[in-house]
Simulated assay, not measured.
Amino acid sequence: MSSTPEIKQVETHQFGPYKIRTSEVFLSTPLSLAMVNLKPVVPGHVLIIPRRVALRFQDLSHEEVADIWTLAQRVGSVIEPHFGAVSLTFAIQDGAAAGQTVPHVHIHCLPRKMGDFENNDEVYDKIDEHAEQMKERLDLDKERVVRTPDEMAAEAAELRVLFT
């Protein structure tokens, strides 16, 4: 009698049109998720998203706004010292004209160090550059050459223990 190998289902969350593996999420609340970034601008650059897919910030409920920013505050307070940073940049690109390429509200949380960019506001150029690359890409798996699902899962596991 032959047995069929068991197919393991990978639990995912929705990030706009993309599936995010649960292994890439390091902290969650009933309304929001904190996840590692496919292509971080600086070490520790993570994203905080509402669980519900909402295109624009104005589409969030008052509860979701409070929850996503509370989670961003909690995440920032832990990843800043973990990555040896001295400051944080929080950024939202709200709508296509603002550079949003994934149609789902998300907060970029970047640990910052003195001199990490020659001109401090270059961080926004880097976020925009990254967004443009994301818009132009045709194959998500091709982009993942930068960070594999295993690399992202490993970073999420590293961060997850900081919140237990």
Score class of each variant (00 low, 15 high):
Met1Lys: 07
Ser2Gln: 05
Ser3Glu: 14
Thr4Ser: 10
Ile7Tyr: 06
Ile7Ser: 09
Lys8Met: 11
Gln9His: 14
Val10His: 09
Val10Cys: 08
Gln14Phe: 02
Phe15Tyr: 12
Phe15Pro: 03
Gly16Phe: 05
Gly16Ile: 01
Pro17Phe: 03
Tyr18Arg: 03
Lys19Glu: 14
Lys19Arg: 13
Ser23Trp: 00
Ser23Phe: 00
Glu24Phe: 12
Leu27Lys: 14
Thr29His: 10
Pro30His: 06
Ser32Trp: 03
Ser32Ala: 15
Ser32Thr: 02
Met35Lys: 04
Met35His: 13
Val36Trp: 08
Val36Cys: 08
Leu38Cys: 10
Val42Asn: 11
Val42Ile: 04
Pro43Phe: 12
Gly44Cys: 04
Gly44Arg: 09
Ile49Gln: 07
Ile49Glu: 05
Arg51Trp: 07
Val53Thr: 10
Leu55Ala: 09
Arg56Ala: 08
Arg56Gly: 01
Gln58Asn: 10
Leu60Lys: 01
Glu63Arg: 11
Glu64Val: 02
Val65Met: 10
Val65His: 13
Ala66Asp: 10
Ala66Tyr: 15
Asp67Ser: 08
Ile68Tyr: 04
Leu71His: 00
Arg74Asn: 04
Val75Gly: 05
Val75Trp: 06
Gly76Gln: 02
Ile79Gly: 01
Glu80Met: 15
Glu80Ser: 13
Pro81Asp: 13
His82Asn: 05
His82Glu: 14
Leu88Phe: 09
Leu88Arg: 08
Phe90Asp: 01
Phe90His: 08
Phe90Lys: 01
Phe90Val: 05
Ala91Leu: 11
Ala91Glu: 15
Asp94Ser: 07
Asp94His: 05
Asp94Lys: 06
Gly99Ile: 04
Gly99Val: 10
Gln100Ile: 01
Thr101Cys: 03
Thr101Leu: 00
Val102Pro: 06
Pro103Leu: 08
His104Lys: 06
His108Phe: 14
His108Asn: 10
Pro111Met: 06
Lys113Glu: 07
Gly115Ala: 13
Phe117Cys: 11
Glu118Trp: 12
Asp121Trp: 09
Glu122Leu: 05
Val123Lys: 00
Asp125Lys: 08
Lys126Arg: 15
Glu129Thr: 12
His130Ile: 02
Ala131Val: 01
Ala131Phe: 11
Glu132Gln: 13
Met134Lys: 00
Met134Asn: 01
Glu136Trp: 00
Glu136Asn: 14
Asp139His: 09
Leu140Asn: 12
Asp141His: 12
Asp141Phe: 11
Lys142His: 09
Arg144Val: 01
Val145Glu: 15
Val146Phe: 15
Asp150Thr: 15
Glu151Arg: 10
Met152Cys: 05
Ala154Thr: 05
Glu155Val: 04
Ala156Ser: 14
Leu159Gln: 06
Arg160Pro: 00
Val161Thr: 15
Leu162Met: 06
Leu162Asp: 02
Leu162Phe: 06
Phe163Val: 07
